[in-house]
Design a protein around this nucleic acid. Sequence first.
DNA 1: CAATGCATGTAATGCGTTACATGATTCC
DNA 2: GGAATCATGTAACGCATTACATGCATTG
Lengths: 188, 188
Amino acid sequence: MNTLSYGLLAFLAREPGSGYDVMLKIQPFWQAKHSQIYPLLAQMEENELLSSHWVKQCDKPDKKVYSITDSGIRKLKEWMYKPLPDPVTRDELSMKTFCMWMTDRDNAIDIVETRKSYFIRRLESFQSMQGKVTEEHKKFGTREFYDHLLIQKGIFNAAAGLEWCNWVLGILRECDYSEPPVLVKPSN
Amino acid sequence: MNTLSYGLLAFLAREPGSGYDVMLKIQPFWQAKHSQIYPLLAQMEENELLSSHWVKQCDKPDKKVYSITDSGIRKLKEWMYKPLPDPVTRDELSMKTFCMWMTDRDNAIDIVETRKSYFIRRLESFQSMQGKVTEEHKKFGTREFYDHLLIQKGIFNAAAGLEWCNWVLGILRECDYSEPPVLVKPSN
DNA sequence: CAATGCATGTAATGCGTTACATGATTCC
DNA sequence: GGAATCATGTAACGCATTACATGCATTG
């Protein structure tokens, strides 16, 4: 049981769904492809944390709907008491920012603009999720309240990223950016 | 050549250093263990992007110092024009936030406090790095200016994370948090 | 004298992505 | 007729973590 497995359990603890369903729900918060998700669900079914049955659909392919079992719920609750690992972020932009002194201004701006539009897309998507949370659920007490917290987490992060992009773009555009500094190979 | 390889090259393009040196420098921005770094450096030396020589030290073990080659610099510059992938974040806290309805209040607070102290540590560490950047380098034009941008990136993110934690803790503490809601297994 | 930091490496395992594979339906 | 969406799976590969392995110097 890795974190992704618990994540999938967490979504299925709210309502039953197919592998495809949970994939779509989890992706804004944890990147995972279907090729990773399907085997994990099958494995959790074997361990009796999940049960499944096939549901026929008209005008769509049949789907295998998973539901959490009592044993799955117990497992999830136990997990909530296990130590929280630090988050892991891998962002090529950090590495490229560190290298910007060796490229031209237009390219530097291009790189940051690419990221900026990513954050705008993401912000919009989180805000539209937020729009679906009713006012009473933003108060407290229900399960949906925690959707609200999670979506806000996404919004806080995307907003901070966007701010940073705008701050950097401001600097890159206002300054006169001479040719990439003459390369002096570090002496050793 | 994966992103980590380019990242290591990027740090060695500033100044030569040992595997251990670059490991320490890169870690605040890209999590990687020495067991991953050493083989990559060796491989890049084979491909002549790096060269190395052993440096004797008194009262410390000898170290193998790598320097970037002209070919390495060319490779880095080319990389700067390749498309920027989206960042990847894997945060167990997201999954646990989504599950907070099934645990008790004290545990929920505990989880968020754990993360809060992580962000405080991180903020302090970035701010101390920031303190080492001189005022003239915060202006523009030099290589060190991009250190400043990168450190700010870390600060923006940690600050946003911290804000979210405080916001959540405020809610969890002010509300009367009844026993974890009676578990109703979703019907299917 | 035990723990921590400096320093370098390899091996095994686990996690994640890309590619392979199939097939129905809908929309342009 | 081609692309996109829904739907499920497996296989191969690459990336990352943990564990194994060694050894010296310093600090408490």
